[in-house]
Design a protein around this nucleic acid. Structure first.
Lengths: 145, 145
DNA sequence: GTATCTGCAAATTTTTTGCCAGTAG
DNA sequence: CTACTGGCAAAAAATTTGCAGATAC
């Protein structure tokens, strides 16, 4: 019989990432991370706040902002900023792209990664050392079409 | 011999774009557009404000914001928003990519365009109709390295 | 025990809006 | 003429900060 080891694997990953950057593991950080990891809707800070409050009614919006920033700094989340002024957070950190609906603003994941030769190509910019990239498609999603 | 036709070609393009969307051509819009077209530094709204004020000392920040939005709406400029909360404007509207330095925040142009097959690929997202995309490299620029 | 973290409220920063006079077409 | 604009100042939205008590390690 397997003990409930599996249940803590994700939070262990978080703990390690936090400690690697000199941060501490807290209940709030765990909750923010768990919420992000459990959704693929790319929520705004406000939406994360509301979602996390369901489990941690006393958490404050300021803490959510601080913790989202901490997670991004640890590489446990990605922040996506848009031209309409909104910012959204993504708990998936493996290579993937995004598609954003111009109509409703929804953001969805798109599998795949850019061919390596595109990232090392010298025509990227003379002297520029590429470490990452962001590829985002824009258009109209299925429900809006 | 040749009359000063060339000088007005750019503003004519702007005028046409504005009128196509029911907007009017004004001195301020011309100046904002001219400033954007004359730089490749991808300035912030505030920087556009300062730059344009050199030629139009009476222009207000609010007008710059409104006009940048108008230009973006007409397809005469592109707005780029970043995770650090800043937004920058690009007067180039032909297909190209960007590279952003994580150290100093500078944004530069990168020639090229995504292979067509990547944009029509069905794996982008079921039912999603792609109309455009944004590709941005991140890393360290030559001067920061 | 002590540096870090949280919640709260206030402060900042960034962007948008209402209003009236001015202007393009 | 008349609707669209610009400038100004005020408002709204988004994010950050200072502080005192609580907590992780």
């Amino acid at each position: 019989m397997s003990p409930p080891v599996q249940a803590s694997v994700e939070s262990d990953r978080l703990r390690e990432a936090l400690e690697a950057f000199g941060h501490r593991f807290t209940e709030q950080r765990g909750a923010v991370h768990r919420f992000l990891a459990g959704t693929d809707t790319h929520p705004t800070a406000e939406e994360v706040f509301h979602g996390v409050r369901a489990q941690l009614p006393a958490i404050s919006l300021a803490t959510v902002y601080k913790n989202l920033e901490t997670l991004v700094g640890c590489g446990m989340a990605i922040k996506l900023s848009y031209s309409d002024g909104s910012s959204r957070y993504d708990g998936r950190t493996d290579p993937h792209h995004h598609a954003r609906c111009n109509r409703c603003g929804a953001v969805m994941d798109v599998p795949g990664s850019l061919p390596t030769e595109m990232m090392t190509a010298s025509d990227v910019c003379p002297g520029f050392h590429v470490t990452g990239y962001r590829l985002e498609f824009t258009g109209v999603c299925a429900s809006c079409a």
